[in-house]
Structures are given as structure tokens and as C-alpha cells.
């Protein structure tokens, strides 16, 4: 084997080895990403409109959402997940604000940040009327805070 052959075959071999390592690493990373998620669906029904009272919002613990019902304007659904680091905010009726217990973020009635480290306003989710007359919330679809479903 001469010098030229050694170098060219060596380059080919090295390239093959590097790509094999790269492909294997990629496969390991892909392996760690689940192909199936055994998680609650992002879109779900929360019950009949009549189940929800007027006035203070209903807090649905499992879904981590607040359901607001206004006499004239209708339904709106706000996320209870703080946009800072994901703690569950509480809605205080006294000042009509959302308070996060973890790092003290405060959100106004429309979800806007009033105080604290939260970088974004609270999310509002689309709420629609399903065919069977129940309310359906889709967490994948965020809407402006002015969004209302009039039933």
C-alpha cells in the first residue's frame, strides 16, 4: 500500500466511522423520545354549560384551567399554569387577580402580567360547543383574552 492509497482509504474509513458514530448517537437520542404518549388528551369536554355558575371562575384541578362564565359575554377558559416555571396559579376573588405561589408572579383579570418574573400573560384556550351540547376545551389552540363563547 502506498502513501496515497493509505491516506485516501484512511480518510474513507475515518469518515465511515464518524458517520456510524453520528447515526448511532442520533438513534439513541431518537430512542429517548417516546413514540406514543400516554397522557391526557389536549382537547377534552368539561361538561354542560349549565353546570357552570355565574360569578367566580370554576377551577378544574385535573385540567389545570379556570372556566369563567359571564352573564352577558359567555364562556372563557384560562390556563392555571404560570408562564414562568409552571406552578399552578390561584385566582383571588378579592382583587380579581391570579397569584403564583412559587415566585410571586401576579396576573390581571385578563391574564396580563402585573408583577413578578412571569415573561408572558396567562394562556387563554379555545372553548367550543361540542355536538352533544357539552363544552369542549382545546389546549393546543390559544386565543386572545377577549375571546368568548356565547351559549
Amino acid at each position: 500500500m502506498n502513501r496515497r492509497a493509505f491516506l485516501s482509504w484512511g480518510t474513507v474509513g475515518l469518515a465511515a466511522l464518524c458517520s456510524a458514530v453520528a447515526v448511532s448517537l442520533g438513534a439513541v437520542c431518537r430512542f429517548l423520545v417516546p413514540s406514543v404518549f400516554y397522557e391526557p388528551p389536549q382537547s377534552f369536554k368539561i361538561g354542560n354549560p349549565a353546570d357552570f355558575p355565574f360569578g367566580p371562575p370554576a377551577f378544574l384541578a385535573d385540567e389545570k384551567i379556570f372556566v369563567f362564565r359571564d352573564r352577558d359575554k359567555g364562556f372563557a377558559v384560562a390556563s392555571a399554569v404560570c408562564t414562568h416555571l409552571g406552578c399552578t396559579v390561584a385566582h383571588f376573588q378579592s382583587d380579581q387577580r391570579f397569584h403564583c405561589p412559587c415566585h410571586g408572579s401576579e396576573f390581571g383579570a385578563d391574564g396580563s402580567v402585573l408583577h413578578g418574573p412571569a415573561p408572558r400573560p396567562l394562556n387563554w384556550f379555545e372553548v367550543t360547543l361540542a355536538r352533544d351540547g357539552q363544552l369542549r376545551v382545546d389546549k393546543d389552540k390559544t386565543v386572545p383574552s377577549s375571546y368568548r363563547l356565547v351559549v
Binding site: F59, A61, D62, K64, H84, L85, C87, T88, C100, P101, C102, H103, G104, G116, P117, P119
Partner: peptide, 27 residues
Amino acid sequence: NPAKTPNPAKAPWYFLGLQELVSHSAL
């Protein structure tokens, strides 16, 4: 309990410096 965050929610002492930092800005 995913529905109820303790108030205050504190990490063990050795991470409270970090928690103090993130309470000002997460990034």
C-alpha cells in the same frame, strides 16, 4: 397534588439560591 402548589413552594436549601435567582428572571 398537581392542582395545588404549596405556598411558598421551596426547594431544599442548597437550591434556594438558584430559586432566588429564578424568582427574578427564569432565563
